[in-house]
């Protein structure tokens, strides 16, 4: 069963492992016929399309639950929404069969809404967008486990625009390469000449995959 769920603003500081555990417990509460792994510490067979980082909310996060018996989407939604806290409700579910391509493998990009808390900062950042996108390379620092490395995020930005206090961005997100919202913000700050801290709320609006025609569409529609 493929399901779309929300991680609300209130619980944005909950890390991915805890979200996973909460979904597992929600499934256990729901009484739905889910499949368990074998072995010592049985857990529900479930995969998440992408880990959402601590501090970010998610509008359409995606998981794939292996069911032990056929279950229709409506029952799944109803039972799960009763079993999940208001902060993590499901908005969609769709039965998929085992041959469905892996979520993680199909993931290409994510749509973000970066809400900038200070109005004048937002204005400056947004007006820096065109100039930044003109550039041949957009260099910013990427944090790896051990070091900071400079990298070019230009090819990783698929769409970028701003309005009011929001910066809307579609950024590459695959198993191999991705651009984190924070990296984009750093690049924008550099362009706008802002050195002080910019407070923002990150909302991941959607996860995108690629269809046969090479278009990016919502992952759950693949």
């Amino acid at each position: 069963m493929l399901a779309v769920f929300e991680k609300s603003e209130r619980i944005r500081h909950i890390g991915h492992l805890d979200i996973q555990r909460s979904v597992q417990r929600g499934l256990r509460r729901s009484g739905l016929p889910v499949a368990y792994s074998q072995g010592f510490n049985p857990h529900i067979l479930i995969t998440f399309a992408s880990a959402l980082s601590t501090g970010a909310c998610g509008k359409r996060e995606i998981m794939d639950v292996t069911m032990a018996e056929d279950t229709d989407a409506e029952t799944f939604m109803q039972r799960m929404n009763r079993a999940m806290p208001p902060e993590m409700q499901l908005t969609e579910a769709r039965p998929v069969d085992d041959r469905h391509p892996s979520l993680m493998g199909s993931l290409r990009a994510a749509v973000y809404d970066l809400t900038i808390r200070e109005k004048d900062q937002a204005e400056k950042l947004i007006s820096a967008i065109p100039a930044m996108m003109e550039k041949e390379k957009i260099l910013t620092l990427r944090k790896t486990k051990t070091k900071l490395a400079e990298c070019d995020i230009k090819p990783l930005i698929y769409a970028l625009r701003g309005r009011d206090c929001h910066v809307y961005a579609t950024l590459a997100l695959t198993e191999r390469e991705s651009c984190k919202p924070q990296m984009l913000l750093e690049a924008l700050k550099a362009e706008a000449g802002i050195s002080e801290e910019v407070r923002m709320l990150v909302t991941r609006e959607a996860l995108l995959g690629e269809n046969g025609a090479g278009e990016l569409i919502p992952l759950e529609k693949l």
């Binding site: 929600g26 509460r29 501090g55 806290p85």
Partner: peptide, 20 residues
């Protein structure tokens, strides 16, 4: 704002199952 700065924000944010 404080939540963005502290070490373990989830201990302050609530919204747990069976608490609303």
């Amino acid at each position: 704002m404080a939540l963005e700065k502290v070490q373990k924000a989830p201990r302050y944010t609530g919204g747990e199952m069976n608490t609303s």
